[in-house]
Design a binder for these strands. Structure first.
Length: 921
RNA sequence: GCGGGGAUAGCCAAGCCUGGUCAACGGCGAUAGACUCAAGAUCUAUUCUCGCAGGAGUUCGUCGGUUCAAAUCCGGCUCCCCGCACCA
């Protein structure tokens, strides 16, 4: 069956190119890929689900735009190419063995642009093989010169709107490479966080001793400083003042905005027992402690034994040796669940005896966390919660007491690929997108309210992200990208150059006709904002671009995986509101779940991936599509399992065979055909409704399994030897179209096989024909179906060989009771109501029994059936007589239908409406 | 820590918003039968327990509550997953 996928591919060449027309438009976009590796089936779903939606709306008569481009800005490919050049085994394995890059191509990967070039070609090829209905004329990459011009315009606009501001920014930095290092460039320590220490300045003679702390608010509880007697410290001149720090610290400070000059070496021992002072805690002594790490921040710490387990235990050790017995912990924070001195309590509870105990770190974590989340300073120190006081005190120290900030990793083993130690460096003149701006945030929140978000649950996540976003460092020194127009030393960071490119798609194919150097900001001001200015190049041609933009924008839906909510998806709303007027702002977003492979998370780095191309090769594109779209709703995580994919393949084969067989039927229709057509209307309605709500799984259930189940019953009902009636032809035509968005290759082929004109991809989507919904026929068929099920279950239980079947249908008065109950709103009153009727009273106990049984039955039947029953007439005897030959064929015994008469069969008394008494002899 | 999402039969998974269509859709796996020399594919049946008349009992993480009625609503508890950024 895969051979015709190539045929369909040819038919589709260029047909999905979308142009402004008189029809209504539907514009969807997907986050474009960063082509640094091969596509796996997880990527496949990201692009296939939107394709199903695109095909659906196209068939509904909309002009649908589904474009694609490639994001190649950023640093990862540079790291990859370096690693490949160096012969890094892991990288080579990934590209040569997992992604199956041919050796001659791999050899060129030493050039990063070759990597993205190779994989973007591969992406396009694989996307085509999946049948994605993309307008490929609009394809671009983010390093195209025209795209750079577009970015320059965008940033000029943002700059003028005061959305971009300058600041300093700490980064991981390799002194040997003289560059900031990203995650991809690290040998170890990729999870290390940059912590912000406050240096608390203690005065010591003519010098300052900066002690590093994450908890400046505890200054009020300082009893002493700790110095490691085994370490030799240095006296250095920092920005004109003398500091005493470790040698390691001196090196680090140098990278953090300070001038540093070493004056002399000072052995740790010479500091012991000296007095130092700070205005907020007075004079305190310097004590020795082995746990003080010269390679952590400044290399010296202040001691708050009441609240820091390390400090407490070090002091206790000294005091046990009889020293410094006059020093007492000074508590300053109350924490629920702890007494006066939390550090002491924690240490004693765990029975920790030594500062080298392995439990000390977790103990410290615990006390810190408790105090931060629920601690409060004593009233004498202001009474504020710790989380507030921390920032307040830090600010106070910086303003009044000469404190400064020092950045340091939380763990010390951060190593660059080059083998050199990585430090924290403060980058100057860093540019930030000011997402913290409350006015900007308010605009974004305001617009979010008007957006359609699918599934609705993600709305809270968006709201929270908008609330929480801080300024974003939006420029980089290294990588591929566009230079910042007013400060060309900087490159625009990759997430920041991908916020409004959906607007660029509208003109991508036409703007290529312009020389990049003619694309001034004024040109884009005109295209996107309609602002005329003198000297626009080729004004007439530009008008066409403006028309495209006006026709397509805003986009209707953007699709993306859910991990982009906290950055890209929210950023793009920020940028849209900053640049475009209200009528061009995004309309909606659909957020996707992640992919699993045999129950485990898909991950290229772990090798746990299934390449999309291999999947298409092995199973066929339609199978892959149907599986990815049908195994879970888009926003749910899906699990790729080969055995399930295999059964999907069989389903498609079944579909194919059914259509081919059925389209030959041409006997004239009977009542069962009316049933089939009537049922079909429901499937059309539900499939349409589901696809409108992006519920691809639900849509498939209706369009495929729903129709298939009906067909199964239909075949059972028609007489032996018949291939079916002419209604099947109609059903086939509808069925092919219902399935076309999901399995377009198969549908396209079947469409021409069955003699239909044109392409299935552009055929009209089936509409529900209300006039052909026949509730009575459906109800009658339902009655028959349920009765057959009952008969089967009885046959299974009884042991006799049946010789005849008798159906006893319930008398009219029971129908009357059933209807009365079904229609009544208050079912507790219904007994009285019915028994008012003299005719009913005449049945005595039978009537009350019937009422009880009918009530139970009504609760057990689907509400639609009860309603249909209540509102229509149902001649059960007639229905069963009509189906008698069917029943005889099914069970192979004579069938008789009679009114229920307990005089003949005792069981007949049990006959209820919709549930005839069944007598098997 | 903060925020979000979950827990359903051997496995995957629907249902939950809008309580009775629920012993609980669908699929995988398993078992039996038909077809076949055979295997595979396909089709049929069974797959919580009991039952020789369409039934009954016990189930939807756990404990409790509301209701004539709870997988579904409310509260407590236990456990699991994801995000917390300077980057695709």
């Amino acid at each position: 069956m895969q051979q015709f996928e190539a045929t369909a591919g040819e038919k589709w060449e260029q047909v999905f190119e979308a142009n402004p027309s008189g029809r209504p438009k539907f514009y969807i976009t997907v986050a474009y890929p960063y082509p640094s590796g091969a596509m796996h089936v997880g990527h496949g779903r990201t692009y296939i689900v939107p394709d199903v939606i695109a095909r659906f709306w196209r068939m509904r008569g909309f002009e649908v735009l589904y474009p694609m481009a490639f994001h190649v800005t950023g640093a990862p490919v540079i790291g990859i190419s370096k690693r490949i050049a160096r012969g890094d085994e892991k990288a080579i394995y990934l590209y040569r063995d997992l992604y199956k890059v041919p050796p001659e191509v791999l050899a060129q990967f030493t050039n990063p642009l070759e990597i993205v070039r190779h994989f973007s070609e591969e992406y396009q090829r694989v996307m085509k093989s999946c049948g994605l209905s993309i307008d490929w004329r609009r394809r671009f990459t983010t390093v195209d010169p025209t795209y750079s011009k577009f970015i320059e315009w965008q940033w000029k606009h943002l700059g003028e709107g005061n959305h971009v501001v300058k600041g300093a920014h700490p980064v991981r930095y390799c002194p040997q490479c003289e560059n900031p290092v990203g995650d991809h460039d690290l040998l170890e320590g990729d999870k290390a966080e940059i912590l912000k220490f406050t240096l608390v300045m203690f005065r010591y003679g003519d010098s300052l001793i900066p002690t590093a702390t994450l908890r400046p608010e505890t200054i009020y509880g300082v009893t002493n400083l700790w110095v490691n007697p085994a370490v030799t410290y240095v006296k250095v001149n920092v920005d004109g003042k003398n500091w005493i720090v470790s040698q390691e610290a001196a090196d680090k400070i140098l990278l953090q905005d300070h001038t540093v000059e070493v004056i002399e070496r000072i052995p740790g021992t010479s500091l012991i027992d000296q007095k130092v002072s700070h205005p907020l805690c007075g004079e305190v002594p310097v004590l020795p402690a082995g746990f003080v790490d010269p390679d952590m921040a400044s290399g010296l710490v202040m001691s708050v034994p009441a609240h820091a387990p390390f400090d407490y235990i070090a002091l206790r050790d000294l005091q046990r040796a009889g020293k410094y017995t006059d020093i007492q912990p000074i508590p300053l924070i109350t924490v629920p669940g702890y007494g006066k001195v939390p550090a002491k309590e924690a240490v004693e509870r765990e029975g920790v005896e030594s500062q080298m105990d392995s439990r000390m770190d977790s103990l410290t974590q615990e006390v810190y966390a408790a105090e931060f989340s629920s601690g409060k300073l004593f009233d004498t120190y202001g009474g504020k919660p710790v989380r507030v006081a921390r920032d307040d005190v830090a600010a106070l120290m910086i303003q009044q007491y000469g404190s400064t900030v020092m950045y340091e990793f939380d763990n010390r083993t951060v190593v660059c690929r080059c083998g050199s130690r990585v430090y924290v460096k403060i980058l100057h003149d860093q540019w930030f997108l000011q997402y913290s701006d409350p006015k900007w945030k308010a605009q974004v929140s305001g617009h979010l309210k008007d957006m359609s978000l699918v599934p609705p649950e993600v709305r809270v996540e968006f709201d929270r992200t908008v609330d929480w976003l801080k300024d974003w460092a939006c420029t980089r020194r290294v990588g591929l990208g566009t230079r910042l127009p007013w400060d060309p030393a900087w490159l625009i960071e990759p997430l920041s150059d991908s916020t409004i490119y959906m607007a660029y798609y509208t003109i991508a194919h036409r703007i290529r006709e312009f020389a990049p150097e003619t694309l001034t900001p004024e040109v884009f001001e005109y295209i996107f904002l309609g602002k005329e200015s003198p000297g626009l190049p080729e004004r007439e041609k530009l008008g066409k671009l403006r028309e495209e933009f006006l026709y397509w924008y805003p986009y209707n839906y953007r699709f993306s995986a859910k991990d982009l909510i906290s950055n890209h998806l929210t950023f793009q709303i920020f940028h849209h509101v900053a640049i475009f007027p209200k009528q061009f702002l995004p309309r909606g977003m659909v957020v996707f779940g992640m992919g699993l492979l045999n129950g485990a998370k898909m991950s290229s780095s772990k090798g746990n991936v299934f390449l999309l191309e291999d999947a298409v090769q092995e199973f066929g594109a339609d199978t892959v599509r149907m599986f990815l779209v049908g195994s879970a709703e888009p926003w749910q995580d899906f699990d790729w399992r080969n055995e399930l994919v295999m059964s999907t393949k069989k389903q498609i084969e079944r579909f194919w065979n059914t259509i081919i067989e059925s389209s030959q039927s041409d006997e004239s229709d009977t009542e069962i055909d009316m049933w089939l057509i009537s049922r079909l209307q429901h499937h059309i309605g539900k499939t349409t409704e589901s696809l409108q709500k992006f519920q691809t799984r639900q849509a498939l259930q209706e369009a495929f399994f729903g129709v298939e189940a009906d067909l199964k019953w239909y075949r059972r009902r028609i007489s032996d030897g018949s291939k079916g009636h002419s209604s099947l032809k109609e059903l086939c035509s509808v069925w092919i179209r219902l399935m076309a968005p999901i399995i377009p290759f198969t549908s396209e082929q079947l469409w021409s096989e069955t003699g239909e004109i044109g392409l299935a991809s552009f055929a009209a989507w089936p509409e529900v024909d209300d006039a052909r919904i026949y509730p009575e026929i459906e109800l009658a068929e339902e009655l028959l179906f349920r009765t057959v099920e009952d008969i089967e279950s009885i046959m299974k239980l009884i042991q006799i060989t049946p010789s005849s079947l008798t159906l006893c249908v319930a008398p009219g008065w029971k129908h009357q009771i059933f209807k009365t109950i079904a229609r009544s709103a208050d079912r507790s009153q219904v007994i009285k109501e019915i028994m008012k009727d003299e005719n009913m009273r005449a049945h005595g106990k039978d009537a009350t029994d019937a009422i009880r049984q009918c009530t139970t039955l009504i609760h057990r039947l689907p509400p639609q059936i009860v309603e249909a029953f209540a509102n229509g007439a149902l001649d059960e005897e007639n229905i069963f007589n009509g189906a008698a030959s069917f029943l005889e064929k099914e069970f192979g015994i004579p069938v008789k239908v009679i009114p229920a008469d307990p005089g003949i069969y005792a069981k007949a008394a049990a006959a209820l409406p919709f549930k005839p008494a069944i007598i098997i002899e």
